[in-house]
Design a protein around this nucleic acid. Sequence first.
DNA 1: TACAAAATTAAACAAACGTTTAACTTAAAC
DNA 2: GTTTAAGTTAAACGTTTGTTTAATTTTGTA
Lengths: 214, 214
Amino acid sequence: MTLPEKTDKREHLLKAAEELFAEKGFDGTSVRDIAQKADVNLAMISYYFGSKEKLLQVLIEQRFASSLELLEGMINNNKMTPWEKIERLIEYYVDKILGGRRFHSIINQEYNTDRSKEIIDLITGIKMRNFELIKLILEEGVKKKQFRKIDPEMTMASMMGTINQAINAKNLYCRLFSMEGASEEEYQTKMSVRLKTHLKMMMRSHLSAEQPNL
Amino acid sequence: MTLPEKTDKREHLLKAAEELFAEKGFDGTSVRDIAQKADVNLAMISYYFGSKEKLLQVLIEQRFASSLELLEGMINNNKMTPWEKIERLIEYYVDKILGGRRFHSIINQEYNTDRSKEIIDLITGIKMRNFELIKLILEEGVKKKQFRKIDPEMTMASMMGTINQAINAKNLYCRLFSMEGASEEEYQTKMSVRLKTHLKMMMRSHLSAEQPNL
DNA sequence: TACAAAATTAAACAAACGTTTAACTTAAAC
DNA sequence: GTTTAAGTTAAACGTTTGTTTAATTTTGTA
C-alpha cells in the first residue's frame, strides 16, 4: 500500500508542523503538539507520513520543489548581463528566505545536527544544485571581464550568510533597529529593504572589475 | 546554600555537554548522555547546575567571558588605522568561531527557538555589546574619510553571517571543496585561510572610500 | 443495499525524559 | 575522634515521548 496523497488533514499537519518546528525546533516539538495545532488525531501522523522524521522530510522536499526553475531560466537568459542576474538573485533570495523565515530556521537547525543522515543529504543535495547554477553566473561575469576573479564559494557564503544572519538573529536586529515590539510583518518589510540595498551595494563593490587602490 | 564552584566532575560535565549539544542539539541530548560521556553520575547535573537548562546557561556565560577585552583594547588603540582594526577583527573572529565551531552551533541553534527567554536575552546581550564596539570602529573609519558610508548593522551581518555560514554548512562546503572525508582539523585550516582572504578582500572593496563606477 | 477500502478515533504501549530522593562515602573543621 | 557538611551513588519518581493497536466511522463502488 502506498501512502495517501491528498487530504485536508495531511496539509493541516504539514502546516502546523512547519510553524511549530520553526518555533520550538524539531526535537522541541511533540507529535501531540502538531496534532493539537492541526486539530487532527495524533495517530494520523504515523498514518500519513510513517513517522515524525519522515514528516520533516516531506516538508523539506515539498517547500523546496519550485526554486530551481527560476535559476535555470536565468542562466540561459542572454538579454541580462551577469550583474543584472546577480541583482535579480539577491532580490529573489531575500524575498524567499525572509518570507519563509520560520521554515528556513528549521532547515538551518536540522542541518547542524548529525542525527538523520537522510535529511542532511537531502538538504545538501538541494543546496548543491542551487550553488552550481549560481557559480555559472559568477564565472560568466569573469569571462566577460565584468567581474574580477573572486572566490565563488565564499562569495556565495557571504550572500547566503548575510540573509541567514538576518533571519536567525531576529532578536538581535530588532533591538539594534529599536523595533522590539514589532510584528513579524513589520520586521520583514524593514529588513527586506535594508538587506537588498546592502547586498547589492556590497556585491557590486566586491565583484566590480575595476578596483580602487586603498 | 550557593552552588559549589570547583570540581573535576563539574568541568567534565560542561565539556561533555558542550560536545554533545553541538553534535545533537540541546533537546537531542539527554542528561544521561551527558553523564555517561563525562563518566559522572547523572544526579550530579542537578546537583551542580540545578537543571539541564541552567547548565547550558553556565556554558554560554563561561565560554563568552573573555571576548570583550580584545575589542575594547582595539577601540582605544590610536596606532592602528580603522582598516587595520577591521583586518584584525576578521582574523580574530574567524579563528574564534571556527575554533569553537561546535559550540557556536549550539548558540545558533538555541538562539532560534523561543523556548527559554533567559538564554535568548543572555546571548542577545553579549552580541549587542560586541556589536556596539565594532560599530565604533566603522564610524571612526567614516569620520576619517577612509571608509565610505555604509550600513553598519548589515555590514556586521555580512561579516558574522559569512563565518556562520561556513561553520553551519560544513557538510555543503566539504562537498564543494571535494574534501568529504576530511577531519575537523583539515576543514578548519583550509576554511580559515579561505575565509580570511575572502572577507578581507570583500570588506576592503565594500568599505573603500573610492568606489569604481560599474 | 451491500461490501470493501480508506479514514479516523481513543486507548494503550514501551521507552526515554528531567528531576528527586534517601542512603552512603569522603573530606574538612574543631 | 567526633561532628558537620559536601560529594556521590543507585533507585525511583511522575511525565512525556513516538508509535501501534484494535475498534469504529466514513467513503466510494458494484
